[in-house]
Design a protein around this nucleic acid. Structure first.
Lengths: 142, 142
DNA sequence: GCTAAATGTAACTATTATAATTACATTAAA
DNA sequence: TTTAATGTAATTATAATAGTTACATTTAGC
């Protein structure tokens, strides 16, 4: 899982919290990164329909009406990521040895199972529930 | 999760499969990496008591008697790794804004939950079960 | 219409993380 | 005593990731 995931969640929660049009500049400031990176990630969320993006002067990003119900699984999918990702593969598929030739596929299957477990969990966590965790027992303040 | 994990699993399965003392050179050849890296990882497994390591001429690594029962969770712990690891943190703990200051901790909590889910799954997978997957329906061959 | 201020996106650079390599002290069999 | 192995650290090379720059596109406001 890339840092784009926490960045996206942070942005969605901040947008929900503020409830108005926010520029990539302001989001970047709050998230502590740069505006171009914010736009790159938020652009993906927009393509997936998870956020509204306006254009032109005075524009920016805005939550959709049911933003609180967006699951983190949906965010992950919008970014086309997986929680567990190991790029390196052991062995060599062309070897006669079944351990060497088969291990990479078996491990990939395992990563798939782990990702399914994670996605099941992420399905139960929403942008709204993250917001609640941040403001639990406290009134909403800027 | 680092590539050390699949490397370690591969090595353990190969050792179980062969059932004799194997050098880091031979393991590296089967895994498709270099001997020093194998030794670095297997050394950790040895410290955790998951594999026997001999010293001196003609030495190498050997499975312990119950190697098939070693869980992948135990392997992961021996390597001191977590399935989900996102190093980048959004926001700034010193900000007045609770979203900016609190998001990193909330996300860390989430990663912890995901890792727990994954470890529960890894507890059910053993070196022996991986070996079975590789040789399912086939007799054990070199 | 013109200007200003915003997003979308691509190309590039810098930084960090990871894997590979090299080297050598230590160990124990022959 | 020699040889062949592991243990481990230091270094280098490569790959992945984050940051930066640039500019075309869009639209509000004058």
């Amino acid at each position: 899982m890339t840092a784009e995931f926490p960045l996206a969640v942070h942005a969605l929660v901040y947008l929900l919290h503020r409830g108005q049009v926010i520029s990539s500049q302001e989001l970047a400031d709050n998230i502590c990164t740069n505006p171009a990176r914010v736009r790159k990630v938020l652009s993906k969320l927009h393509h997936a329909g998870l956020v509204e993006a306006e254009r032109g002067q005075g524009s920016g990003y805005l939550t959709r009406p049911d933003a609180g119900a967006i699951t983190l699984r949906a965010v992950l999918r919008a970014l086309d990521e997986t929680p567990v990702a190991v790029s390196w593969r052991s062995g060599d598929v062309d070897r006669a040895c079944q351990v060497s030739s088969g291990m990479a596929a078996v491990m990939d299957g395992l990563y798939g199972q782990l990702n399914e477990q994670c996605e099941k969990k992420l399905e139960t966590v929403t942008v709204g529930s993250i917001n609640d965790q941040l403001f639990r027992g406290k009134e909403k303040e800027k």
